[in-house]
Amino acid sequence: MAADALTGGHDQTGSRHRLIAKPGTWLVWGGVVLFFICLAGVIFSVAVDSFATRWFGSWWPQGLTTHWYSDAWSSFNLSQLMTVTGEVALVVVVVSVLIGVPASYVLARRQFPGKKLVMLLFLLPVLIPPITYGIPLATLLYKVHLAGRLSGVILANLVPSVPFVVLTMTPFIEQVDPKIEAAARMCGARTTSVFTRVLAPLLVPGVLAAGILVLVRTVGMFDLTFLTAGPSSQTLVVALYYSVFSAGIRAQQSIDSMAVIYTASMMVLLIIALRFVNPTQLVTRMKEEVAG
């Protein structure tokens, strides 16, 4: 309503404003279009190449084929990679929700000495790039012989996921009216039943949103998985990186077809996520936490 009035107000302020604003508007939209053209160029280069028989220096490949996809499936052992990626992501989601949601309940509802310190502990992993704490963490995990296995990869991926759940769930729980819990207690509900029968149903949308975002982040997480994974515990991203970095062993098209498979699966995940979460709102909620 207010926004409509604002744009209406723009038009009514007369031709002087529109004349000044117009080149700026064109410049802005031109920039957006240019960004999308480059983005499309990047994506289509890879997508077309993954279907190409041969493509050297011409506008369009000599012929199209789909055999790179079946090749990639067998030569990269894709089914095993997918299984590992799925296992890691699911365990990380479940554990980080189980650890994070109770913690965010306390942080949302209670005041206690040292609360700021606890908040800082949950904030630091968001503010420090993963590769920075990932190297000491991986060193430690190698020392206790957990790195190189699935459990090491899961533990490392939990480090940014638990704070992420806490930081997204705390504002969500804050907006649930505490009077509802008080009413339940007045009617004689014990703590367990307050949690399972009153709070849990109210928290389902928030938990779902946080869980899906953790899933997307974990599937896409490169740094920590790269530092801790062994040959049998690689996820899709890490396997892709190795195949590009040791280029020459595999055909370019084979790598590209795998990158397309990865991106397609990420997009499916993200489209599901966007059905539950509004990105701009989520960022606001998370940002307030970071700012506070």
Partner: peptide
Amino acid sequence: VVPITLGTVLTAEG
């Protein structure tokens, strides 16, 4: 939001 799904490798290859 699409570029978030691309991942480093597809961006790099592209």
